[in-house]
């Protein structure tokens, strides 16, 4: 009996400790007090987030991250990079392994129930790549032809739903899909336009003939649910950075070399509101 009571008291104490610690998990004030911010970025997805040959984090997302760190602490070094996989972007926030995710994170309604998205800093839509010699420049060009998609992506959903008249050739992996296009197994390949811009730049016989299609999605920073101060601060910063033309500079420094001069920066950047 005494033992049982002791156990209950101990349990209650432990629970109270856990709850009290949880309540103070890293919002903006705590980050400032800690003197550094933990930002989750990709380590192997150029040009958005990757590690260069010198071991330094680079890319469009990293460019923005460094600016935010500088605005917060006055120096771009007060950051701890967390290298994240696409599938664990939500988990790193929920498990408090990172304060902020900047990893080409597309805003969706389902994800928004699990993390909080700040103001978007980039947009993405579908595109269709095709051989220069048999250019597909509008959806009508695809009538009666075959189109390659990667299973489960937005391009797969979009064409299955809106254009059942176009025959789809589906692959599990992006690599297989692009190889199939190279082998001439279909008239074109549909994917995120940003992905296609980078690919067609390196595969000069192909071109992103349709660069904007379907619903426009946005890419935004994400924070753990309930980090209201941090969320508000990041959103406010992004609005200021858009107004100051920062993202044009970020594009020129990181995306332009990967996408090539044929791409209009406006197709991925968020316009200034004025």
């Amino acid at each position: 009996m005494r033992r049982a009571r002791f156990l209950i008291v101990a349990l209650a104490l432990a629970l109270a400790m856990i709850v009290s610690v949880k309540a103070q998990a890293g919002d903006l004030d705590d980050i400032k007090a800690a003197g550094k911010i933990r930002i989750a970025v990709f380590g192997d997805k150029p040009p958005f987030g990757f590690i260069d040959e010198n071991g330094a984090n680079q890319g469009y997302d990293v460019y923005l991250a460094k600016r935010l760190v500088t605005d917060l602490f006055g120096s771009p070094d007060k950051v701890e990079w967390v290298l994240v996989e696409a599938a664990s972007r939500i988990e790193v926030l929920q498990a408090n392994k990172a304060d902020l995710v900047l990893a080409n994170f597309t805003v969706t309604a389902e994800r928004a129930t699990q993390v909080d998205f700040a103001k978007p800093y980039m947009k993405v839509a579908l595109g269709v790549a095709s051989p220069k010699s048999a250019l597909i420049s509008k959806v009508e060009d695809l009538k009666g032809k075959t189109l390659i998609v990667t299973k489960g992506t937005t391009s797969d959903t979009y064409f299955s739903k809106n254009h059942p008249e176009i025959k789809l050739l589906k692959f599990d992996q992006n690599t297989e899909a692009f190889n199939a296009l190279r082998d001439g197994r279909a008239a074109g390949l549909a994917h995120d336009n940003t992905f296609l811009f980078a690919w067609t730049k390196d595969n000069v016989n192909f071109v992103t003939g349709i660069d904007f299609l379907g619903d426009e999605d946005t890419i935004a920073p994400a924070v753990k649910k309930g980090q209201t101060q941090l969320l508000a601060w990041v959103s406010e910063r992004i609005e200021k950075l858009i107004a100051e033309g920062f993202f044009e500079k970020a594009y020129a420094a990181t995306l332009a070399p990967a996408f090539g001069p044929a791409v209009d920066p406006k197709s991925v950047l968020i316009e200034k509101l004025n």
Binding site: I18, K22, E91, A95, K97
Partner: peptide, 9 residues
């Protein structure tokens, strides 16, 4: 790595 932190901090 994740669950311990998420549920028990």
């Amino acid at each position: 790595y994740y669950s311990l932190s998420k549920f028990w901090n």
